[in-house]
C-alpha cells in the first residue's frame, strides 16, 4: 500500500489475494470455485425444482423458468437469426444465467461472514480467470459456428465487403474476447470495490444506493455479455450476398 498517498487500509478488501488450491502442478483460485459451485448449485436447484412437475398451466417456479427461457430465446433469436438460434440458445442462456447468478450472488450473499485463510469470497466474475474463460469460449463458439455453418466460406467474412477490412477483422478477433472479459471483470470488480470502500468510509446509508446500482450493473453486464456473444455468433453465421 506504500504507493498510496495515505495509508488506506484496503487490506480489509484483500484485493488480488487468492486462496490457492494446489492440484498437481497447477494452482487454482479456490475462492472462485467455492462461490461458483455454490451459485451453480443454487441455479441447478432452482431449475430442478421448477422443471420437476411441468404443466400446461404453469405454476410457481415454472413461471419464472419459462420467463427466463422466453427471454433467452428472444435474445438468441434476435441476435443469431431464425435459422440456427436453436443450436446456440443453451450456450447463450448458460452464459447469461451463469454471469447473472455470479454477479448477483457476489452482491447479495454476505460472503464476508465466512473467513478464509487468504483472499475472500465474492462474485466469481470478479476474477479475471473466469471472465477470460467465458470470453474465450465465446471466441471458440463463433469460430465453430461460422465454420460449421458455412465451411471455409466463413473466411469470406474477413474480406467483406472489401479486402481492406481484412486487418481490422483480424484485430477484431483479438479485441472481441479482450473487451468481453475486461468489461465484465472491470464492472464487477469495480462495483465490489466501490461498495467495500464506501462501507469502510461511511458504513451507514450511503453504500445502499451504490449497492442497488451495483445490482443494476450486474444484471446489465450479464445481459451485455450474453447479447454480444449471441451477436458475434450471429455475425459468424450470417450469409453475405
Amino acid at each position: 500500500m506504500g504507493f498510496l498517498p495515505f495509508v488506506f487500509p484496503l487490506a480489509e478488501l484483500e484485493v488480488g489475494q487468492h486462496l490457492y488450491w494446489q492440484i498437481g502442478n497447477f494452482r487454482i483460485h479456490g475462492q472462485v470455485f467455492m462461490t461458483s459451485w455454490l451459485l451453480i448449485g443454487a441455479l441447478l436447484a432452482l431449475v430442478v425444482i421448477g422443471t420437476k412437475k411441468m404443466e400446461r398451466d404453469p405454476k410457481g417456479v415454472q413461471n419464472l423458468l419459462e420467463f427466463l427461457w422466453d427471454y433467452i430465446r428472444d435474445l438468441a433469436r434476435t441476435q443469431i437469426g431464425e435459422k440456427v438460434y436453436r443450436d446456440w440458445m443453451p450456450f447463450i442462456g448458460t452464459l447469461f444465467l451463469f454471469i447473472f447468478v455470479s454477479n448477483w450472488g457476489g452482491a447479495l450473499v454476505p460472503w464476508k461472514l465466512i473467513e478464509l485463510p487468504s483472499g475472500e469470497l465474492g462474485a466469481p466474475t470478479a476474477d479475471i480467470n473466469t471472465t477470460v474463460a467465458l470470453a474465450l469460449l465465446v471466441s471458440l463458439s463463433y469460430f465453430y459456428a461460422g465454420l460449421s455453418n458455412k465451411g471455409l466460406r466463413y473466411f469470406e467474412y474477413y474480406v467483406h465487403p472489401t479486402p481492406i477490412m481484412l486487418p481490422f477483422k483480424i484485430v477484431e478477433d483479438f479485441t472481441k474476447p479482450l473487451s468481453l472479459s475486461f468489461r465484465l471483470f472491470g464492472n464487477i470488480l469495480a462495483d465490489e470495490l466501490v461498495v467495500a470502500v464506501l462501507v469502510f468510509l461511511v458504513p451507514l446509508v450511503l453504500p445502499v444506493p451504490v449497492m442497488f446500482l451495483g445490482l443494476f450493473t450486474s444484471a446489465i453486464q450479464a445481459l451485455i455479455f450474453a447479447t454480444l456473444a449471441a451477436y458475434y455468433i450471429g455475425e459468424a453465421v450470417e450469409e453475405h450476398h
Binding site: V15, G16, H18, I23, F26, R27, I28, H29, V32, F33, D127, I128, N129, T130, V132, A133, L136, L189
Partner: peptide, 8 residues
C-alpha cells in the same frame, strides 16, 4: 488482480 492460472 491479473493472476492467470489453471482457474481459467
Amino acid at each position: 488482480l491479473f493472476d492467470f492460472d489453471a482457474t481459467l
